[in-house]
Write a protein that binds this DNA or RNA. Structure first.
Length: 593
RNA sequence: GCCCACAUAGCUCAGUUCGGUAGAGCACGUUCUUGGUAAGAACGGGGUCACCAGUUCGAAUCUGGUUGUGGGCUCCA
């Protein structure tokens, strides 16, 4: 039964992909009719749609899209057939004599036979398959134009790419467009501004985050939780400076391998110092202040360490890609025989965090040895196998990401999906074969001799900045109560209820509940509206009845209202919601505005 | 860094076609209103139209450059 369903789903998916691919050919035909001198690159189907790369006589602007779209509709209405032909490589060269990108592709084809597809006046080299005729393309929309390097190589020409989406029904297309709108509503950059959480200012510097009071509250709650949990799990919390002598980074190899990410050195009394791009050297330096016995291991140094990396201007993105950020970093120094248990413990911690913060969409990846690597094949294989065993013990599904390890060791990554459907790097656990030998990070074994430690770099949230972005998009700004910047908004009906409201505020604050009175000379409606827009979890309305009976009327941001209840009972409800770090069943953040 | 687009009040945006030195709503301030679950009313303050040049009698508007933002590409320890 399940198998049947999945087979028919698979067929539908395959058909959709074929149709999207054909749509890209139709788009190419439309572009050709508008710009006869176009040089064509490639035009595949992608998730939800398709694109085609063109070399055009002039830059496209968004205004060109409707024109191309209309031309495509004409082609679809004409229902022209897709005709497959096979020619030899030599014949193909002649057909595409004026198409340099196609010629380059032809030269790389493995077979002597080349398949072509013709529809209407447009002939393209293509493996296929395609729909029978253009009329099978049902619902599509051109989304945007973008630059794209030929073959993804930044040293080759920049082409113009047109992206489109396509579905088998208008309803499915409409649904997709709605999803895009919802994603835009949940964009952390928009929510960050609306909820007054943070800003990134041109005048201050691109990629540098200013955390406003409300964002700082969320961060503090996350950090306190993080510290408690690390302390509980046997980590030692440390602090290390933001700058260090450049020589240290030369010894570590960072100067050589990561020079593109480092800021220029500064001169201090004739010595060069740099801003740290990582926290590991501080932790290694602490480790090395004394001789360590095998009995001391494992040592786990944890730090919310702020690092600075030069990111090229075009890659900056809200809180997700910045130039200064705080990693929830830790380095574990252990013996080889302890590695597996340590990795299992880190995985357990990472998954505990993920569950606590309410994430469901994430993926575990084991990255193996890349082409360029430090150490020997034997130690790589052994460590990779250790990571794999740890993943198996965790009992969660994972995938292998071949060759995606860092040069210094294999790693396990956890990736989140953001509201915009992008995968973002979350927790990462990396074994390091490079630093211990470079810095002689050793321990004295039972045999009285020094042995290199096994070093593990790990983060469980990624960075505070990126993690806030992920949280915001996940909850659409409606944080669960334990994380909400304001947990309770107290709304007096009239001024004569202010004293009672203040009294409630004090009592809530005494319990470490973040409560505020809305004391403005406004009617109740705007106060409710304001609290709704701020996505405050609890609104307490207090008027004559409540003052009289020592009760509160509770409104949740879902719009749900409860009958007046004793204040003490409400306080207990909130306290337990916070203590349990309960997720919120309602994540939309209420009515859109 | 590369391609395209964009940059007007704290925010969201009109105004730019065809050059004649700025507008709305929200927010903010004052006053009135003390109102029971998503916008009460009146009045008021607020902008070197991102920045620097150029063209012009005159530039928010045209041209060039710079910076930043957005969508992509490349990159992401």
């Amino acid at each position: 039964m399940n198998k049947l369903v999945s087979t028919s789903n698979q067929k539908r998916e395959e058909h959709l992909e074929t149709m999207r691919h054909s749509a890209s050919h139709v788009m190419a035909e439309a572009v050709q009719s508008i710009f006869p001198d176009t040089k064509f690159a490639i035009g595949p189907a992608i998730k939800d749609g398709f694109y085609y790369d063109f070399d055009l006589p002039r830059p496209l602007s968004p205004d060109d899209l409707p024109v191309i779209e209309n031309k495509m509709k004409e082609i679809i209405a004409a229902d022209t057939p897709f005709i497959r032909k096979e020619v030899t490589r030599e014949e193909a060269r002649q057909v595409f004599a004026a198409q340099p990108y196609k010629l380059e592709l032809i030269d790389e084809l493995p077979d002597e036979k080349v398949s072509l597809y013709q529809q209407g006046s447009f002939l393209d080299m293509c493996r296929g398959p395609h729909v029978k005729s253009s009329g099978e393309i049902k619902a599509f929309k051109l989304i945007n134009v973008a630059g794209a390097y030929w073959r993804g190589d930044e040293h080759r020409p920049m082409l113009q790419r047109i992206y489109g989406v396509a579905f088998d029904t208008e309803a499915a297309l409409e649904e997709h467009l709605q999803r895009l709108e919802e994603a835009a509503r949940r964009d952390h950059r928009k929510l960050g501004k609306e909820l007054d959480l943070f800003s990134i200012q041109d005048e201050f510097g691109p990629g540098l985050v200013l955390w406003h009071p409300k964002g700082a509250v969320v961060r503090r709650v996350i950090e306190d939780f993080w510290k408690e949990e690390h302390f509980r799990r046997g980590y030692d919390l440390v602090y290390t400076p933001h700058i260090a002598r450049m020589d240290l980074w030369r010894t570590s190899g960072h100067l050589e391998f990561y020079k593109n990410y480092l800021y220029s050195p500064m001169d201090i009394e004739g010595q060069k110092y740099i801003l740290k791009p990582m926290n590991c050297l501080g932790h290694i330096s602490i480790y090395k202040t004394r001789l360590r016995s095998y009995r001391d291991l494992p040592l786990r140094y944890a730090e919310l360490g702020t690092v600075y990396r030069y990111e090229r201007s075009g890659v900056l993105h809200g809180l997700s890609r910045v130039r200064g950020f705080t990693q929830d970093d830790a380095h574990i120094f252990c013996r080889p025989d302890q590695l597996e248990d340590e990795v299992v413990a880190v995985l357990d911690l990472a998954l505990f965090m993920i569950d606590t913060f309410g994430f469901q969409n994430y993926q575990l990846l084991l990255s193996t040895r890349p082409e360029k690597y430090a150490g020997t094949v034997e130690i790589w294989d052994e460590a990779t196998e250790t990571l794999r065993r740890a993943l198996e013990r965790s009992g969660r599904d994972y995938e292998i990401d071949p060759g995606e390890g860092v040069f210094y060791g294999p790693k396990i990554d956890i990736k989140f999906e953001s509201a915009l459907g992008k995968a973002w790097q979350g927790p990462t656990i990396q074994v390091d074969f490079n630093l211990p030998p470079r810095f002689d990070v050793n321990y004295v074994g039972e045999d009285g001799r020094e042995h290199p430690v096994v070093m593990v770099h790990r983060t469980v949230l990624g960075s505070m900045e990126r993690f806030l972005a992920t949280l915001l998009e996940h909850y659409g700004g409606a944080f669960p109560t334990w994380l909400a910047p304001v947990q309770v908004r107290i709304i007096p009906v009239a001024d004569r209820h202010l004293d009672y409201a203040r009294q409630l505020e004090t009592e809530l604050k005494d319990e470490d509940i973040r409560a505020e009175v809305d004391a403005r000379a406004e009617r109740i409606n705007p106060k409710i509206r304001q609290a709704q827009l701020e996505k405050v979890p609890y609104m307490l309305v207090v008027g004559d009845k409540e003052v009289e009976a020592k009760t509160v009327s509770v409104r949740l941001r879902s719009g749900e209202q409860t009958a007046a209840q004793p204040f003490a009972r409400f306080k207990e409800t909130v306290k337990s919601a916070i203590a349990s770090r309960a997720g919120d069943s309602e994540r939309s953040g209420g009515k859109a505005n």
